[in-house]
Computed example of a mutant assay.
Amino acid sequence: MTVTSVPLRDRVAAPELVLPQHPDIARWRPATLDDLDAMMVLMDAADRIDHPASTTTRAEVENALRSSKLIMATDTLVGESSSGVLIAAGVVAEAQAQSTRVQVYLEGTVHPQWRDRGIGRQLLAWQRDRALQILSGSPHALPGWIMVDQEQGNIAGQHVSERAGFTLTRYFTEMERRLSDPVDPVEPLADVRIVPLTDDLVDSARLARNDAFRDHWGSQPTTSERWEHMTSSPEFRKDLSRVAVEMTDAGEQRVVAFALISVNKRDWEAAGYSKAYIEYIGVVRDHRGERLAPAIITAALQSLRDVGIERATLDVDSESPTGANTLYERMGFVAGERGFSYVLEV
Rank of each mutant, 00 (worst) to 15 (best):
T231N: 14
D286I: 02
S241L: 07
H229K: 12
D315F: 03
T231P: 10
D249M: 08
W268L: 03
T248N: 04
Y277I: 05
S274F: 01
I296K: 03
S232A: 12
R226T: 13
I281D: 08
G251W: 09
R266T: 13
W268T: 00
D215M: 06
R288N: 02
L301D: 09
A250Q: 15
R305T: 09
A271R: 11
G251P: 07
S233K: 03
F213G: 10
I278T: 08
G251R: 01
H287A: 07
V243L: 14
E279R: 06
G272M: 01
S232H: 09
R288E: 08
V245K: 07
F258Y: 10
E246W: 02
M230H: 10
R266K: 11
V316P: 08
W217L: 09
A295V: 02
M247F: 12
S219T: 04
W227H: 15
A271Y: 10
T231A: 15
I309K: 01
A212V: 09
S219C: 10
T223E: 14
V284A: 11
L292E: 07
S303T: 04
H216G: 07
S224W: 08
I278S: 02
G289A: 06
D306H: 01
A293Y: 03
E269V: 05
R291H: 13
D306N: 04
A244L: 07
A250I: 02
D249F: 06
W227R: 14
D306A: 10
I297W: 01
F236S: 14
G272Q: 12
F236H: 09
